[in-house]
Amino acid sequence: MVEDTRGIDRTAFVILVIGVAFILTPIVIAFLTASLSYEEFVSAGGIGLNVGSSFLDNMRRIVTETRLPGQLWNSIVISLLVAGIKCAFAFTATFALVFYESRWNWIIFSLTIATVMLPLELLVITTYQIVANVAMPLNWLLQITGLAWLSEQVVGAKHEYKLSLLDTYIGVALPIATSSTSVFIYRQFFLSLPKDLPRAAAMDGASPFRFMIDILLPLSWTPLVATFMFWFIGGWTQYLWPLVAAATPDAQPAVVGLAKLANTEPDRIPDVPLLMAGALFVSFIPVVLIGVMQRQIVRGLNLSEK
């Protein structure tokens, strides 16, 4: 095309530079501040452009003096659980919804998609009560059906089942994993596959289960990896739910630990360099993940058609 695009390209260039600067500024400030010692920071009296030499020392203190390393491990386990459960449950369910003939399909699809409407943060108060005793619904059921009364007559004592998942990895992860956006994404993907796929597999004598594992799973690798990464990061960045579901510091993920670290020493000017080092420490794994995997994530979430 012979078209004069210099004007618009120059504008685009300026816009992108400003955008990148906006994104990078907090990160750069975090790095600069994390390179200062506490004394340097206090005497500097504010944000400066000077680079200190204490970055490694602050990181060493994060690793040795705070609970963040252990909490980083908690984050990894919780995020893996969240991503794993979300992908596995959604994959099998979507397989059923797309490849099975059932009048329940529509209802189940609606029920799962509706979870997107209400984020977990909204339900924290009551979810907490359920996780504190996951047997609660069972007790209600026994009571309503009269079975509780029956067993009370037989055994002679009232029995209530109890199982608390507070402060456990699984208890933190399960409620986060309820949001079922994956069903939507997988469904889009399955529907784009050739319609004759299951028929062909059946002719080869493959059971539905075999078809799912041997044919569908390898085909779905791209969206699976993308959603897994996406939910891993989603689990990592959760805050409100882990804050309440994991009360003891040993069970909390790193993001919660970082926020708590900000309030540990109210008696002196906060150790901002240590906090900034902590923020970088906590964000390192997901940022690297998204940096390395961004192409796959974008492609797998079907966000780009090119």
Partner: peptide
Amino acid sequence: RNIIIWPKAVAGASIGVVFVFI
């Protein structure tokens, strides 16, 4: 493109800790 996607991976609470100082 590569840089602008980064904040997606940073938790709101971590951003808060940094911005409160900024």
